[in-house]
Design a protein around this nucleic acid. Sequence first.
RNA 1: GCCGCUUUCGUCUAAUGGUCAGGACGCUAGGUUCUCAACCUAGUAACACGGGUUCGAUUCCCGUAAGCGGCACCA
Length: 440
Amino acid sequence: MSKVIDPKRSRVIETLSLSKGRRTTGPERSRRIRVRYAPSPTGIPHIGNIRTALFNYLFAKNQNGDFLLRIEDTDQNRLIPESVEKIKESLELLGLKWDEEEHQSKRLEIYKKHLDILKGKDLAYEDDGAWRFKVEKGKTLQWDDVVHGQVKFSSDVIEDFIIIKSDGFPTYHFASVVDDHDMQISHVFRGDEWISSTPKHLLIYQAFGWEPPKFVHLPPILGADHKKLSKREGAKSVIEYIEEGYLPEAIVNFLAFLGWSPKDDREIFSLEELTREFSLDRINKNSPIFNLEKLNWFNSQWLRRLPQKELSKKIKKAFPRYDPKIVGKLTPLIQKRITNVNDFPKLCNFFFEVPKPLDSVVEKGVLSKVAENFVKVSWNAEEIKNSIEDFAQSQKVDKKDLIVSIRNIVAGRPVTPPLYESLEILGKDETIARLKKYVS
RNA sequence: GCCGCUUUCGUCUAAUGGUCAGGACGCUAGGUUCUCAACCUAGUAACACGGGUUCGAUUCCCGUAAGCGGCACCA
């Protein structure tokens, strides 16, 4: 396999490039780490797809390199223009900032010029309006894959493949090779499913006399059924996950651990920490399975690490109908009790609406007296606690029964944040009112 | 059919030519507790199979099986 670069040819190609910006030659050129996330705008990328972007980003930033975004919009039929914005939004939500941006549809001229070069070498021929690459049989195509090691194919199993479609747009095989070279990509991160296509790409690199980049073929994230991740199994977009109450930090942390692991046993990593620790040699070869339980755990971990104000803000934003002042007071009480921002109402909606009471386990008369006692209590958790405990003792009522009863009536549910604090926040008048209404 | 990739607890994974094969999620039990969480303790469960190589293989080699992927004018 030829790894020789023809400098003359290479320079000719360079001048064809439309993209401006720094362009180095010589050894420097191969040293700079440059990677790209190259989605096709045919929909909103799901979380598995975004993981590829994350790995790209982590590696680039770990190496002080560049992370580029390349929109692969060469399929006119499947193109959904709005998805470009969704792709960007997904990256932004996770904090994955890209350094440069390209759109293949703006580079048609470049592909044409490169086709001409191939024609000149008699390596491309027309077929029904499209152009095919002429595959030389009997060759061995191999590369040292960053995650899989040596992979080898015979060119005998590759047929002449289309590089320019009859509509004038290039196919992935052609465009990605031309672009990766032109954009000086050092490492190509992509899904495993591209392994079988890589020999084609190698052929194109050879045809131009270019040195191929390193290939990093990532195993795909699978569903619990060991099949390609379906919507049902979790193949939702980052945007959806965030709407469902997941934190970007948790999503990033979770995704990074699907197919990668650090040197030690630590599990909680911010994007910045991941960037510092990331290394290619710790990427796994086998396909991980998407596990919502673990995502939930990461989310609860990140939720509790959030500054209280941040969490309040998120809850207020998610539930604008709730009194923000009360939400603020409730936040410290529920921070360790929820695994998801959207769990908030399940625990706290009785602060904002009068619930239907559950049954008391103590006599109504007892509750009536409790309510009376509350009237003269100076309303804070400590005093409420004293009041209830003193009452239980003096009236020979089981404290637990009393608490359960108050909770059942005031909150209308068996599970709430700690009762004394809850009553304090709910307010004296409202607490007494709910008790009285029940006994009446 | 042809070509290729993969295989450690249910799941994410670590490690190793000699280990009680480690951690985490989940689950179970107990403790703590006003409920739920949180927290603490304990428990549960894995080297796909068969051959080699070796004093010794989960680890190295070769097969087999299973799973997955590719073989488009889609990426």
